[in-house]
Amino acid sequence: MPPADDVVLRVENLVKHFPVKGRIPFTSGGVVQAVDGVSFELRRGETLGVVGESGCGKSTLARMLVGLEQPTSGAVRFGESVVHEARGRELRALRRRIQIVLQDPYTSLNPRRTIREILLQPFEIHPDVLDRRRRVERIRELLDLVGLDPDLHLDRYPHQFSGGQRQRIGIARALALQPDVIVCDEPVSALDVSVQAQVVNLLERLQDELGVAYVFIAHDLSVVRHISDRVAVMYLGKLVETGPERGLYEAPRHPYTSALLSAVPVPDPAGRSGRQRILLAGDPPSPVDPPSGCRFRTRCWQATETCATTEPPLAAGPHPVACHYPLAA
């Protein structure tokens, strides 16, 4: 059932609001607008990077993509299926096709199960994928694929592995059912710099070999640039700019993207005196009560009256931006 054109995942106007309790019992404190109208398409075999600061809704987005969270409105379409409307056989098929790798390799693996049991579990849930007698052979291949030694590692427990090795196990588990899409939610941010490069290289190699598409969610703009074909920038629950990796990083059009990029420290002391840095004032506002009009206007240096009253839409095109006064490309 993969779709005929090369779009594997189509996200349409996705919204997630969480109700908040009020200070007085039995009253409402409003809603957290965690994700507020996000749309994008993911093509076969590509990597879409999603960047944003903490609280921008990127993890809620990840959880909705794989069906762990029910959206308030909007849809995630995979071929003919809608992720949150599918039931029974259709839902089981969908779950095989869209997998997730989580940030913390210390809590996403069951500490009381061996690696053999952890990797066999997907096949027990989806028994029709592979004949029982071929499964152990398959998980040995999987371990080999992610750079672990099946003879050495198959019967160990998660605590016997380093952080980088555990993340490899998480990736092997996500690959077990040969998905079309893997959502990676901060997959390398808990790892040391020297180990992070190993996992990034592994993800790239697996994509080349298996043609799987990634939604790569992270706060580290350097890692996202390295791994992504296209990048989406999120601010307070909305996409403010999406575009091809090169275009977005070399010529950002949204003021927020520009400020975000200029804030990233560059490992080159020679150029530090000449670098121009846009220092944003303050923190992102609360998603319970976001600013009217453009949500970035309270921190934007070129905001006008219009920005306070009218919300800028994410324009169409190859490099869309949601800003009334986009920066010159």
Binding site: S194, Q198, N201, S222, H226, Y249, P267
Partner: peptide, 24 residues
């Protein structure tokens, strides 16, 4: 040397990152 080569950069895109093998 390995640390510097294994770090992706925001101001340019390298084709392949160098990865220090193993773990600390």
């Amino acid at each position: 040397e390995g640390l510097l080569a294994s770090m992706p950069r925001v101001d340019r895109r390298d084709e392949q990152l160098y990865a220090i093998p193993g773990a600390p």
